[in-house]
């Protein structure tokens, strides 16, 4: 496989995953806030700010109040905002385009339909009353793409690259969502029993990562900071957990690099090392300094991505 095309496929996987997480974050936060138990959590300004934080723009219009329609448009459909959902989908399609000879017709057609759906979505409808419909479609179409990737491509190098991109991005987005909700939880501590540990924001966090039902089944208790973080970071059976994503990356790097030789400069080595670190981490370590683990994880993921670029994508 061409190095340039591999890079494009890697990013195709990432962009699909990214748009899905952003879309879900918008929906879950907006609708959870409507009847949130806590006043701050219910505040529209607070929610919009949280959305901006997730896409990496926490300081937008810092002084004044922020306009709902503006924020929703910016994150969803603004063609001039690089991190908008529409641009993520456009980028994934551009990347798919350049690898069109390698991916299945079915996968390409689904990506193409996805793009056309978004690019034809009426911005006025979306900002007025289409948030649920729009974001639900984005997440569902992403799910379809995931299915097409799994079922219409040979499970070879091409597949491995897409899956690695998707999992590195998933871990990154989940960590960013954790980070955003962690900060929200810190801010939204009321004067009653809903202190940080039992914040309403943990439930929102789980819903943002489609893990609420799984978590409830697993713990059978109302989520707390500890159980939520343990579930989302360390539980290998939770398909959205950092641990699960790292396992996936680890499994698929072996398809790309099947050398048995020990090479501590390889991506494979780095991935294995990072994975091992999380495998033997306990929630007690995490609880001590949550911000630290957030930063560390994001750094690790960035390093893996950089290493892949060096090893596989640039000759």
């Amino acid at each position: 496989m061409l190095a340039r095309v591999a890079n494009n496929l890697f990013w195709m996987g990432r962009y699909i995953e990214r748009s899905e997480h952003i879309a879900r974050y918008l929906r879950v936060n907006y609708f959870s806030s409507l009847d949130a138990p806590n006043q701050i959590s219910q505040s529209r300004q607070f929610v919009l700010r949280s959305m901006l934080t997730l896409v990496g723009d926490p300081d937008a219009n810092k002084e004044g109040s922020i306009d709902e329609a503006e924020v929703l448009f910016k994150i969803g459909l603004d063609p001039n905002y690089p991190s908008s959902i529409i641009n993520n989908v456009r980028n994934s399609r551009e990347n798919a385009n350049s690898a069109r000879d390698l991916i299945s017709t079915e996968l390409y057609e689904s990506i193409n339909k996805f793009y056309h759906f978004i690019s034809q979505y009426d911005a006025n409808v979306y900002t007025k009353n289409g948030l649920d419909d729009f974001t639900r479609n984005v997440t569902e179409m992403s799910a379809i793409l995931r299915g097409k990737v799994r079922s219409t491509l040979m499970h070879d190098e091409i597949y491995a690259i897409i899956i690695m991109g998707a999992n590195i991005e998933r871990a990154t987005q989940v960590m960013r969502i954790i980070s955003a909700k962690y900060n929200d939880a810190l801010k939204a501590q009321g004067s009653y029993g809903d202190k940080f540990k039992n914040s309403f924001e943990w439930t929102t966090l789980l819903k943002c990562t489609e893990s609420y039902d799984m978590m409830r089944r697993h713990y059978k208790k109302t989520p707390t900071s500890i159980t939520t973080l343990e579930f989302l970071i360390l539980n290998p059976n939770c398909p959205r957990s950092i641990m699960n994503s790292l396992n996936q990356v680890c499994k698929h790097i072996k398809i790309l690099d099947n050398k048995k030789k020990y090479d501590r400069d390889s991506t494979s080595f780095l991935v294995g090392k990072v994975r091992a670190e999380y495998e033997f981490k306990s929630i007690v370590d995490i609880e001590k300094d949550i911000q630290l683990i957030i930063n560390d994880t994001l750094n690790h993921l960035y390093e893996i991505s950089q290493k892949m670029e060096k090893e596989f994508f640039s000759y």
Binding site: L2, A3, A6
Partner: peptide, 21 residues
Amino acid sequence: VELVEGRDLFVENDFVYMKTI
């Protein structure tokens, strides 16, 4: 077969190569 662009190929000692992973 591979679909390449000019930047995916290079020439060394009068042989043509493509840059793969």
